[in-house]
Structure formats: C-alpha cells, structure tokens
C-alpha cells in the first residue's frame, strides 16, 4: 500500500500533503489575522467608524508620543523583572525536583503538586491576592499583630510590587516545566564524571548543568516574556488601573473604537516581542537541542 502510494506520488508531494493540514490551520488562524491587523493599522478612524485608507497617522501618533515610550519601557520593566524572578525560582524548583528527589514517583508527585494552583482560573488566582494584600488585608493585619509594623503597608497592593507578584505567581510554572524537562534528560553520568574530576558542586552547576539546561531556560523565557508583554488584565487589576502596559493601551483603544490605532500598537508590540525572541534564540539552537 505504502509502496504503491510512493510509486504514484513523488516524495515531495507526499511531504507537502502531510504538511498541508497544519499549514492551512496556521494560515487561517495565525497568518491571516496578523495580515488583517497589519492592513487595518494603516486605516483611518472617526469616532464611531473605521475606513480603509493608507495612512501613517496611527504610527506617527504612536511613535511621536512620549507616553508610548513610557509605556513600552514599563512593559519591558515588568517583563525583565518577572523573567529574572521566575528564572531563579523556576530553575531552583526544577533543580530540586530533578537532582534532589531521587525516586521517580516522588518526582511526579511533587511536580503535580506544583500544578495544583493552575487548576483554577488565572483571573481568580490573581484577584485572590487583592483581599490578602489590602490595607486591612490578611498580610497587613498579620504583620501588625506580630508587631513588625505599626501602620499598614500601602505599597503591598495597587503597586508595581503587586503586579510583579501576580505575574510571578501566574507564570513561574511556565519556567519550571521546560527546565525540569531538559534537566531530566541530562545524562547522570556526566555529573558523576564532573565529581570524579574534582569539580565542586558549584562548578558542576555552572559548567555542566546550566549549559545543558539552556534550551529549557530559553523556552521558559520565551513563554514568560511573551505572556507578560501581551498581558493587560493583570496590570489593570493589580495596579488598580494606575499603571499601564502596552496591552492596556491596546485594550483602551479597542474600547473606544479606535481599531486602527490599536492595530498599529499591536504591530509595534509584535515586532518588539519578535526581536526579543530572536535575541533569545541566538543563545541556543532549539531545533538541535530538542
């Protein structure tokens, strides 16, 4: 049967045929919408309608506004800080699971434990911080009754602190999973060899484990950075609407029917994120490593 098919169709045709379902799905649900967004970003808008045109107004306004730069900077700040914290946390958790927990059963059990919070919606996980961190919330009343502070800490909620806290809470798992996955595939004999050659624990970490975990780190970083840069709801709720990131800029525009302006912002954001991913991929050849 297979031989027959091979005979009747040339190799290349089979390859194209097998790839076509995914190509069609990606073309219809990824490429086409992006093309639409790019096209609309050149359109014009009145207060309640949009009209086809080829204008650079949207980009001109976007790129000449001081606010755009401030907001992109703020977005980058959130992404960078969240990335650094989730990396340290994620790496540590994955390291513990992969190298300190010896039995596979426990590894699986503890790994599942990490995922339990993710059984609830991420909006709920985020909002549940609000009563906890509030002025009269559990955190403040506990600290006051312990005598650590006299006045409630105002910066716990509706601040950059709470935004980043929520991001870390929401996205650390996206770092743990790929790092844990690559660590599990490190040949244990390499680590034994390092010990045998007299490497200290720290030297083994920096010379053996981290280089071999790089693909996992990069994949995790891509997850976290893209999620944080594309977010708008976490920033809105946790900053009490007082801070802005690019996602909020877009959502405000959409709410006010300014689709072309929203599309232009989305295009700029897309380019920024692609550049970041491009840089990350310079560090490791994912196709080779996987």
């Amino acid at each position: 049967m297979q031989a027959q098919l091979r005979k009747s169709l040339p190799q290349a045709a089979i390859a194209w045929f097998l790839a076509s379902p995914l190509t069609l799905v990606l073309a219809g649900f990824l490429v086409l919408p992006i093309v639409m967004i790019v096209i609309v970003s050149f359109w014009g808008a009145t207060e309640f309608s949009i009209y086809p045109a080829f204008l650079f107004d949207n980009y001109e306004f976007l790129l000449s506004s001081r606010v755009t730069y401030a907001v992109f900077l703020n977005t980058a700040k959130y992404a960078l800080v969240t990335w650094a914290i989730t990396l340290v946390l994620g790496f540590t958790v994955a390291y513990f699971l992969a190298f300190h927990v010896r039995s596979l059963t426990w590894q699986v059990a503890l790994f599942l434990l990490c995922t339990i919070p993710f059984w609830t919606s991420n909006i709920i996980r985020m909002i549940s911080w609000i009563p906890f961190l509030g002025r009269n919330g559990i955190a403040n009343s506990a600290l006051i009754s312990m005598g650590v502070i006299d006045e409630p800490l105002e910066w716990l909620l509706f601040s950059d602190f709470s935004v980043i806290l929520a991001f870390v809470h929401l996205y650390t798992l996206f770092m743990v999973v790929p790092i844990f996955n690559t660590m599990m595939r490190i040949d244990k004999s390499l680590i034994e060899a390092a010990y045998d050659n007299g490497a200290t624990g720290f030297q083994t970490l920096t010379n053996v484990i981290i280089p071999l975990t790089k693909p996992g780190i990069v994949i995790g970083s891509i997850f976290v950075v893209t999620l944080v840069m594309g977010d708008f709801i976490t920033v809105r709720f946790m900053s009490g609407s007082q801070s802005a990131n690019v996602g909020r800029l877009i959502s405000n525009d959409i709410a006010l029917l300014q689709y072309p302006s929203a599309a232009a912002t989305a295009v700029v954001l897309l380019i920024t994120v692609l550049i970041v991913i491009g840089i990350l991929l310079r560090f490791v050849d994912i196709r080779k490593e996987l």
């Binding site: 207060e47 306004f61 609407s241 405000n252």
Partner: peptide, 19 residues
C-alpha cells in the same frame, strides 16, 4: 457628555493613566 475634542481627550486620558 461627549465632546467635540473627544479623541484628543481620550488620548490625554490614556496619558493620565500611563503617567
């Protein structure tokens, strides 16, 4: 109300939120 300068106001409002 909705103003004649609504689009300008909205942009300023966005700046206020982002500031």
């Amino acid at each position: 109300a909705v103003m004649d300068e609504n689009q300008y106001m909205v942009r300023k409002w966005n700046e206020f939120i982002a500031s």
